[in-house]
């Protein structure tokens, strides 16, 4: 099991190279990429910021939870920080298991929990206005 934070866009093959086990008939890899739109706005790129020690320790907790819930053999997750262009790989989750069922389910669990729990923030750059932190808009008071 390995959780890491890395500067700049990720290389999926490098992240998942360690996932080798002859007992495993399934390898599931999820790659999260920077898309060019969000909530109706054109996005030109973004920045990720993380509190690295806590992002790594919380990510390790997520991987351990997945290993308890499903009979997987190994799992890795790497999340990018810094400036990323459209199409760059921002996060990679890789899981190997004897069979595909547990590998798919564990990979889905890991990416969902990573997105919800790790202290990582995204600042989007837009075509039509100044950059904004995602999920941090001030409520409009009538």
């Amino acid at each position: 099991m390995k959780m890491a934070i890395q500067q700049g866009g990720l290389d999926m093959a490098a992240v998942t190279a360690s996932l080798q086990d002859d007992r495993c008939g399934a390898a599931v890899v999820f790659e999260g990429r920077v898309r060019n739109h969000n909530e109706g706005r054109d996005v030109t790129g973004l920045e990720y910021e993380a509190h690295e020690p806590l992002a790594v320790s919380e990510g390790e907790v997520v991987l351990a939870e997945a290993a308890r819930r499903w009979p997987i053999r190994d799992a890795v997750c790497v999340h990018a920080v810094g400036t990323l262009e459209i199409g760059a790989v921002a996060v990679v989750v890789g899981v190997i298991g004897d069979h595909r069922g547990e590998a798919f389910e564990a990979a889905r669990f890991i990416i969902d929990e990573i997105k919800a729990r790790l202290p990582i923030w995204k600042r989007e750059h837009y075509v039509d206005g100044p950059a904004e932190w995602v999920n941090c808009q001030r409520p409009v008071i009538d």
């Binding site: 999260g32 990720y48 993380a50 509190h51 806590l54 992002a55 999340h79 921002a90 996060v91 990416i111 990573i114 997105k115 919800a116 729990r117 790790l118 202290p119 990582i120 923030w121 995204k122 932190w133 995602v134 999920n135 941090c136």
Partner: peptide, 10 residues
């Protein structure tokens, strides 16, 4: 004390 705004990883 560290204050973290809503996370947005992935």
């Amino acid at each position: 004390v560290l204050f973290f705004p809503p996370v947005a990883g992935g």
